[in-house]
C-alpha cells in the first residue's frame, strides 16, 4: 500500500510541476535577454550617466524625460521622421505583398522558383542592401538619376531633401520586406477553400470583387499580424538611415537631420554624445510609441469586414 501511495504522490508532483519545468527554459532566456535589458534600460534612463563612466552616474529621476519631451526639438524631429517612414514603409509593404501573393497564387510554371525568389531580398544583409541602394540613389553617378536624366527630369539630390530621402529609405525597406509578408499571405490564401470562389463565380462576382470580398477578409488575421510585425520593425529603422549617409556625420541622418529616425537619434546620443542615460530615455519613449502605433495599426486592420 505504502509503495503505491508514494508513487501516486510522485505522480501528482510530476503533473503539477513538470509543465513549469518544460516552459522554464523559455522564461529563463526571456528573463536574461528580454526582461532584464528592458528593466535595465529603464533604470539607466533615470540617471545622468556617461557611457564610459558608469561609476560617476547619479540619479536624476525624470529629468531626461522632461528634457526629451518638452525641450528637445531634435527628438520631435526624429519622431516625425520615424512616423513618416512608418507610413511610407508599412502601407506599401502590406498592399504590395497582397498583390504579389495574389499573383503567386496561380498555376504558373516554375512557381516554386518565383515563390522562393520573393524571399531573396529578405535574406540578404541589410548593410549590403543599403550600401547598394545608396549608390543607386547617388546624386552625381546614381542609376536612378541617370534614368531620370534620360527622360529629361534632371538630377535629384536624394539625400538633401526630406521627402526625397524618405522615399529612398522607404524603397530599401519595402524592397527587403515585401516578399516576406507576401509569403505569409500566400500560405493563408492556399488555405481558403476553392468552393468559396466557385460559388462567387456562379453568383457572377468578378476577380477583383472576389479578391476584396473573399480573399482580403479571410486574410484578416495575417494582415493584422503583418501590420504589427512591420510596425515594430519600421519604427526602429537604424541601419538604413545610418548607412544611407556614410561618413563622419552618419548618425545625424543628413545635414539638417532630415532623415534621422528616433533609433538613429538614440544612437547619436548614446555613441556620439556618450549620454547613456538620455539615450536610454529615448529607447523607453520609442518603445512606448511603438506599442501605441502598433495598437493603432491593429485597430485599423481589425475593421476589415469579415462577413
Amino acid at each position: 500500500m505504502a509503495v503505491v501511495d508514494r508513487a501516486a504522490r510522485k505522480h501528482r508532483w510530476d503533473t503539477k510541476f513538470a509543465p513549469y519545468a518544460y516552459v522554464a527554459p523559455y522564461f529563463l532566456l526571456f528573463g536574461v535577454f528580454g526582461l532584464f535589458p528592458l528593466l535595465y534600460t529603464v533604470w539607466v534612463s533615470l540617471q545622468h550617466r556617461n557611457l564610459l563612466d558608469s561609476d560617476g552616474a547619479y540619479f536624476i529621476w525624470f529629468s531626461n524625460y522632461h528634457q526629451l519631451l518638452f525641450a528637445d526639438p531634435y527628438f520631435w524631429n526624429a519622431m516625425g521622421n520615424t512616423l513618416s517612414l512608418w507610413l511610407l514603409t508599412t502601407i506599401p509593404q502590406i498592399l504590395l505583398a497582397l498583390g504579389i501573393a495574389q499573383l503567386l497564387n496561380r498555376k504558373v510554371r516554375t512557381r516554386t522558383l518565383f515563390r522562393m525568389g520573393v524571399i531573396l531580398p529578405n535574406i540578404t544583409s541589410v548593410a549590403a542592401v543599403t550600401i547598394i541602394f545608396a549608390q543607386l540613389f547617388g546624386r552625381d553617378f546614381g542609376l536612378i538619376n541617370w534614368v531620370l536624366d534620360l527622360f529629361g527630369a534632371g538630377h535629384i539630390d536624394w539625400q538633401a531633401g526630406t521627402a526625397t530621402s524618405h522615399i529612398a529609405i522607404a524603397t530599401m525597406v519595402v524592397w527587403r520586406w515585401t516578399g516576406y509578408h507576401a509569403l505569409i499571405f500566400l500560405a493563408s490564401m492556399q488555405a481558403i477553400p476553392a468552393s468559396l470562389y466557385e460559388a462567387a463565380t456562379l453568383d457572377g462576382a468578378k476577380g477583383w470583387q472576389q479578391f476584396w470580398r473573399i480573399t482580403v477578409p479571410l486574410l484578416r488575421p495575417q494582415i493584422i499580424f503583418s501590420t504589427i510585425i512591420a510596425t515594430t520593425g519600421n519604427m526602429r529603422l537604424l541601419a538604413e538611415p545610418l548607412l544611407f549617409n556614410p561618413g563622419a556625420a552618419a548618425s545625424t541622418g543628413g545635414s539638417d537631420r532630415q532623415f534621422q529616425t528616433a533609433a538613429l537619434y538614440l544612437y547619436e546620443q548614446g555613441f556620439t554624445n556618450w549620454d547613456f542615460g538620455y539615450s536610454s530615455a529615448i529607447a523607453v519613449v520609442l518603445a512606448i510609441a511603438t506599442v501605441i502605433v502598433a495598437g493603432l495599426g491593429y485597430l485599423v486592420t481589425k475593421r476589415i469586414q469579415t462577413d
Binding site: V32, F33, P37, T41, R236, L266, Y267, A283
Partner: peptide, 15 residues
C-alpha cells in the same frame, strides 16, 4: 536600441 533588438544583440554577443 529597442529592448528586443538589444536582446538579440546580447544573445549574439553571448554566443
Amino acid at each position: 536600441m529597442r529592448p528586443r533588438a538589444m536582446a538579440i544583440g546580447c544573445a549574439a554577443l553571448a554566443t
